[in-house]
């Protein structure tokens, strides 16, 4: 009897553990942080903050600093592209997105880069920055 109770308790415990682990699995973690480097993560946060406040030069300075530490981080290049897009520097926005693409096979990031390029491209047509079209045609084909 005692054995039965013990095994029943054991089963309940195992079930609880399994359920708990299932719950953990079910609540999907956020997308991976942009870097393993705490400094880089913090700098990107600051850069976004500056970008939101339209302090684009400050944002770009911080991202360039982060890129000196992690030049192969495609997501950092994407962040820089976003700053240049918001700043109206469409040509460079496209170039940085292109650089980001060259460094990644992450489809989600590639899609973000593609969207960014499209956004720059559509705004390029109204501001007649000739270099935009050239790059878009070279890298992404016609929209």
């Amino acid at each position: 009897m005692r054995i039965k109770i013990l095994s029943g308790l054991g089963l309940a415990l195992v079930t609880l553990v399994v359920l708990a682990s299932c719950t953990t699995t079910a609540s999907r973690p956020e997308r991976q942080p942009i870097s393993d480097q705490a400094a880089v993560v913090n700098w990107v946060d600051s850069a976004r903050h500056f970008r939101d406040r339209k302090q684009f030069d400050q944002a770009a300075v911080i991202l360039e600093r982060a890129l000196r530490i992690e030049p192969g981080n495609a997501r950092l290049w994407h962040e820089l592209a976003r700053v240049h897009l918001d700043q109206g520097n469409f040509d460079q926005a496209i170039q940085f997105a292109t650089k980001s693409n060259a460094l990644t096979r992450d489809n989600e990031l590639k899609t973000s880069n593609r969207r960014l390029v499209n956004a720059a491209q559509s705004r390029c047509t109204t501001t007649s920055l000739s270099s935009c079209r050239k790059v878009i045609q070279n890298q992404y084909g016609r929209p």
Binding site: E64, Q95, V135
Partner: peptide, 13 residues
Amino acid sequence: ARYPLSLEQVIEG
């Protein structure tokens, strides 16, 4: 003044 990073893809990947 600041001298920002700029680049242009000139050779296909």
